[in-house]
Design a protein around this nucleic acid. Structure first.
Lengths: 343, 343
DNA sequence: TTGTAAGCGTTATCAT
DNA sequence: ATGATAACGCTTACAA
């Protein structure tokens, strides 16, 4: 009856090896490529692992193996489901391949995102999922120098050199705007997130302007209100918009959250939607359908984007053939918040 | 003119040391406790760090230092804002103290949560934030054996030995139920998440039953429908509830997401809320106020909970004095979805 | 104030 | 199939 080792300290590979009367190399192999080791030995080792409650030390493993099977993702916010659903799918797919996902949130702050990128890389992330193209080129260089593959999601741009999976923000918004103009609206305003640091918002505004041109309107006449993210900000923005451009009959918001805020403000102002004013969003998050009236918006395949992003990124870390960017289709969900222009 | 080292590989501490003509120990000190090193030396080292674009290797650091300044949190879902807001606050507060947060999502699956705990501990999490008490006692032992402090959030229970920050789920729900009974409802049903593995859900149901007793009703008469998380599941659950107990005049859901689903189902069934049926939720997430009619629910101080959880956990890793559990107050938000019982 | 050197717990390359 | 053993990059006594 050998004295079981008291649980005085955390068991290491060496402890397991000792107990199973094999070398540490064998234990390591048992854990990482079990088929390279004899059945009997393997069973003995696994028993020892179980007995001791052994769990590998990640730091040591990362140090020795130079990869971590850990991917990182940085999302602008967790405050709503826009990114949550895509990321959840991303995580599930990674899990299926034995990868772990580390998530960080940048709260829509560029400096914070940079910090998170470095933190994630420092902690050994094998690859990164980032949202949108816009960021300091130095960050891309940093990632390259560390050979950490990086995939851009939620945006797609043929021009740019980064591999991406996303959709045509401008095109989708233009398609929606076309519908708005078809309803007879001539005085359209746009409520947007700050476009300086958010290419998705910028592209969506450009989409509206492109559609204006096509409809024979002057893109410069588009009334633009920029505001940070948030329902309350959407409310304020609508009030501001209507104060500055009272002739507005349709307000196109670059995301659903701002649109929900606008919707609420319209109600507070006693305006009927869509009779007095039409409102549209983008993303098709859950509240879009739940809102009263339900929100006309652009539906984005969040789930599929997340799932496929995982597959692409896994390919990228294998760094065999280069991975092609993927453009996903979007479609418009016509609901009650958009109606004909009041005459 | 010395040849600058080509960016062939990632710079290490030794590279920095060489370039600054000091020992690796000095570089390490410069980085970790700068005041222990002479000003001139420090400047030289920092210059070398900058020149080389050096960033410490996390694995090596964790291995040597045995702590990581990294905390972990495992939340049941990211699909809605219930946990997102609390975690965001948690992260912000940790950031203020120089800690990094790693987030994982268990998708409400116990086995997955266990895996995530081990993954987080393995990657050196100094402490963990977990939601609710319910989990295999072995997990708690595991954490203890690894001396990883663990704080339970969203639940509070004087009896239990785990340090926690949360609120009185049963009490809050009982208070809401009391209001429901005051409105004359006698046939109340409850739609809940699976109570076997979710102490928050279980306590909330118990709260309803406690209030029934106080109102002179038999707690056993409570009609209970269990369903997984999700708006659609809430819809199905309401249909099932009304099929089984058509006399029901009020449905209390253990969270807002199920309640929103119930609300939607009621509308589809042509029932007016609250004239024909009253519906209540729990959590007060954003959609509660946006729903039509707006949802009567229990408001939980997510943000404060997250912020204070960070402070508590930081205390706990210092393992000086034991940290006291904290019970946060909740309050009821009366909105249109609750009305008098149809007579 | 600074340097030397012994770990930290794995993985991976060779042997055998 | 298994074992020795040299990395891996950093921290931290201890020495100077």
């Amino acid at each position: 009856m050998d004295q079981p080792p008291r649980e005085i300290s955390i068991p290491t590979l060496a402890d397991v090896a000792r107990r199973a009367a094999v070398s540490t190399a064998t234990v390591s192999r048992c854990l990482n490529s079990p088929d390279q080791v004899g059945k009997k030995t393997r069973e003995r080792v696994m028993q020892a692992v179980a007995d001791l409650g052994y769990a590998p030390n990640f730091g040591a493993r990362a140090l020795a193996a130079k990869h971590t099977n850990t991917f990182g993702a940085i999302i602008p916010t967790m405050e709503n489901s826009v990114f949550a659903r895509g990321i959840q799918a991303f995580q599930e797919e990674l899990g299926r391949h034995g990868k772990t996902l580390l998530i960080a949130s940048s709260a829509y702050q560029e400096a914070l995102e940079e910090e998170q990128v470095r933190a994630l890389v420092a902690r050994g992330a094998d690859a990164l999922l980032l949202i949108g193209f816009h960021r300091d080129p130095k960050l891309y260089e940093f990632l390259k120098s560390r050979s950490v593959p990086c995939l851009i999601a939620w945006s797609y741009d043929e021009q740019l050199k980064q591999t991406a999976i996303g959709f045509d923000n401008a095109g989708a918004m233009a398609a929606l705007a076309k519908l708005v103009f078809q309803q007879g609206h001539r005085h359209v305003a746009c409520i947007t997130a700050p476009i300086a640091s958010n290419d998705r918002a910028r592209d969506r505004v450009l989409g509206v302007q492109r559609a204006m041109k096509a409809a024979g309107l002057n893109p410069k006449d588009l009334h633009l209100t920029q505001t940070p993210y948030g329902i309350e900000n959407g409310e304020t923005a609508l009030r501001k918009t209507l104060a500055e451009a009272p002739e507005t009959t349709a307000v196109m918001c670059v995301n659903d959250v701002l649109a929900i805020g606008a919707l609420r403000a319209a109600k507070e102002l006693g305006l009927r939607v869509p009779q007095d004013i039409s409102i549209t969003g983008f993303d098709d998050i859950e509240i879009a359908m739940l809102a009263e009236p339900a929100l006309t918006t652009v539906h984005v395949p969040h789930h599929e984007m997340g799932r496929r992003a995982a597959g692409m990124l896994i390919q990228m870390v294998k760094h065999t053939e280069p991975v092609q960017s993927v453009e996903l289709p979007t479609d418009i969900r016509l609901r009650q918040s958009l109606g004909p222009a009041a005459s």
